[in-house]
């Protein structure tokens, strides 16, 4: 059975179209300095951006700062949104650029994971506890991926984005997205296998 949050919520294409149009309408109002519209947009996007940026930065304080910067850019640049892409793709592209800028400032190590972190979460009883621990192991393993690889995984599995949309957000060719996903999967599999071997 698949465990994809987006799939389980049963989001249909028609519903997505409707959401995109409503969001484009909100952005048009934000462009004319309507603060109520901005706050509606902020509340709609905060959970998704928080999840995405937390996965990217792995630091709550930094992800909060980047989220704030992202929405500030949305407020300032809303009039430049030209319906050439979906509003959500436009906003996530801003978030991606802001996160990269913040990570570059910090010179984040690209491939760092503490093996002890993985092992410490790897034991426990069965059932719900086991599933939660699997989630913990997955979180720890994802932390071992580079920012680009984490972003591709996050946008695919948690945000339900198609390959072409991810390429638009990350401003790279579609083939680059596929290649990043290929190596992300390989590394994720190795890291999860590593913890599996330590299970009692």
């Amino acid at each position: 059975m698949a465990h994809f949050p987006i799939l389980q919520s049963g989001v249909r294409n028609a519903a997505r179209d409707e959401a995109s149009i409503a969001e484009a309408a909100l952005l048009a109002r934000v462009a004319s300095r309507d603060q109520n519209a901005f706050e509606t947009l902020y509340r709609a996007y905060r959970p998704r951006l928080r999840q995405f940026l937390m996965r990217m930065t792995r630091q709550p304080a930094l992800s909060e700062d980047v989220l704030e910067e992202t929405m500030l850019v949305v407020w300032q640049k809303a009039r430049t949104f030209d319906n050439g892409s979906k509003p959500s793709t436009w906003i996530f592209a801003i978030a991606w650029r802001q996160a990269l800028k913040a990570l570059r400032k910090q010179r984040e190590p690209v491939e760092a994971v503490d093996p002890d972190t993985l092992r410490s979460n790897a034991s426990g009883p069965e059932g719900e506890m086991h599933r939660r621990q699997m989630g913990e192991r997955l979180r720890a393993a994802l932390a071992g991926l580079s920012a680009e690889h984490r972003a591709v995984i996050e946008l695919t599995y948690y945000q339900g984005r198609a390959c072409r949309e991810i390429a638009e957000i990350m401003q790279c060719p579609v083939d680059t997205v596929k290649t990043r996903m290929f190596y992300a999967r390989r590394r994720l599999k190795a890291l999860l296998l590593f913890t599996q071997e330590d299970l009692p």
Binding site: H3, F4, Q8, Q51
Partner: peptide
């Protein structure tokens, strides 16, 4: 099968 077995839903951030 491996991709579908990954518990992504157990790794979401708690709601605010």
């Amino acid at each position: 099968e491996w991709l579908q077995s990954l518990p992504f839903d157990a790794d979401a951030l708690p709601a605010e």
